[in-house]
Simulated scan of single mutants.
Amino acid sequence: MAREFTTEITDTVVGSFSGTADPRLRELLGALTRHLHAFVRETRPTTTEWERAIGFLTATGRMCTDTRQEFILLSDVLGVSMLVEALNGHGDPGATESTVLGPFHLTRSPVRELGATIDLVGTGEQCVVSGRVLSRDGTPLPGAVLDVWQADDRGFYDVQQPGVQPPGNGRGLFTADAEGRFRFRTCVPSPYPVPTDGPVGALLGTTGRHPWRPAHIHFIASAEGHAPVTTHIFVADSPYLDSDVVFAVKQSLVQDFAETDDPSLAEEFGVVNPFRHARFDLVLEQA
């Protein structure tokens, strides 16, 4: 009797969405219901466990603010963000690979001139990041836009430390020059733990997982006529490259932040010699 009812209620709920005008929404709701019900039938949660699950999701929602997205963080640590990214990736082997957006992207970074610094604090090891934005065939993309953001040398984003870091620290919106070139100054980013003061952090602790991400810089690169790419550049010698808590490391995105001892280059870039220098190109697919 109970087995018949569990099948019947699933079919009833799926059927209740039959009047949904949007066919894709109808498909998604039906699939969600079938898979969710199958999970419940397989694991047979107790009422207490169900209440704890509801409490966890409620707490996750309460942690979300204009500058923090706990649900994205939950998606990240469960590998869902990377799975969605992999399924939606364009798949061109010559283009820059994409990876997760992360929970600390803001709608718009401060507009900065090429060569400007995004490190407004100046406490970390100085670094220059430079390269080109190219089409798949190697053609430079003049006027390409790069949205850049990173944690500081202590592993915090500006929005995590209001009153300590100035707003916009570690962020910049740059426009590539006529040859698709870009460059900016910053500090070498640090590995950092994802926020552990919320329900996602508690989940990691309960399951014995570490919360750390390897050092990286975020990019969204876009150009007219091309598909934008959301990606990271990971520091080659960083810890946690093989155990990123959000599963976002791809080998093609690991870059050498080389120690550079070149006074003339330091003068050109406006940094003190010696310094670290990361050179790489961002390659976009045509839309």
Rank of each mutant, 00 (worst) to 15 (best):
I72W: 01
L120K: 05
I217P: 00
T196R: 00
A2P: 03
P195H: 07
S98Q: 08
S109R: 14
R154S: 13
L203G: 05
L106M: 14
G172C: 11
Q255T: 14
R68Q: 08
G124E: 03
G19P: 01
P142M: 13
P211G: 09
Q160W: 10
A278I: 01
H232V: 06
L203Y: 08
V254D: 03
E113K: 11
G208Q: 13
A59Y: 00
D158R: 04
V188C: 07
S130M: 08
E70F: 01
D66S: 08
S98H: 06
G225R: 13
K250D: 10
A116C: 05
R68C: 02
S243I: 01
D22V: 06
S18I: 06
G15A: 15
S264Y: 07
S81T: 14
G172F: 01
T139R: 14
S109F: 08
S81M: 00
R185N: 04
D11Y: 04
L83N: 10
S252C: 00
A95G: 06
A178P: 04
D197T: 08
A38G: 11
A59E: 11
G15H: 14
Q165A: 12
G225N: 09
T175S: 14
R213V: 01
V254F: 06
Q150H: 13
A223R: 02
D262Y: 07
P93N: 11
R132A: 12
T46S: 15
R34P: 03
E4V: 12
R213A: 09
P167C: 14
F219H: 09
R34C: 08
V80G: 00
S190C: 14
P162R: 15
A21H: 05
G143K: 12
F156Y: 15
E285A: 15
L29F: 12
A21S: 13
F280Q: 05
F257S: 02
A227D: 15
R44V: 13
E85S: 07
W212I: 07
E285W: 03
S264V: 12
R209I: 01
G138E: 14
H277V: 05
D152G: 06
F174K: 06
P140I: 10
A221W: 07
R171T: 03
T231E: 03
G138P: 09
C127K: 01
H277Y: 10
D22S: 10
T33I: 15
P162G: 04
V159Y: 00
G55V: 02
A176M: 11
V148K: 00
N273C: 07
E51S: 09
C127S: 03
A287Q: 12
R26G: 03
E268T: 14
T99P: 01
H35W: 10
G225M: 13
G155A: 06
G168A: 07
G208A: 12
G19V: 02
F182E: 04
F17Y: 15
D256W: 02
L32R: 09
S238W: 05
D119M: 02
L78Q: 00
T186V: 05
T175P: 04
F174Q: 02
R52I: 02
L120P: 01
G143I: 12
P239M: 10
E85A: 15
I9Y: 05
D119T: 00
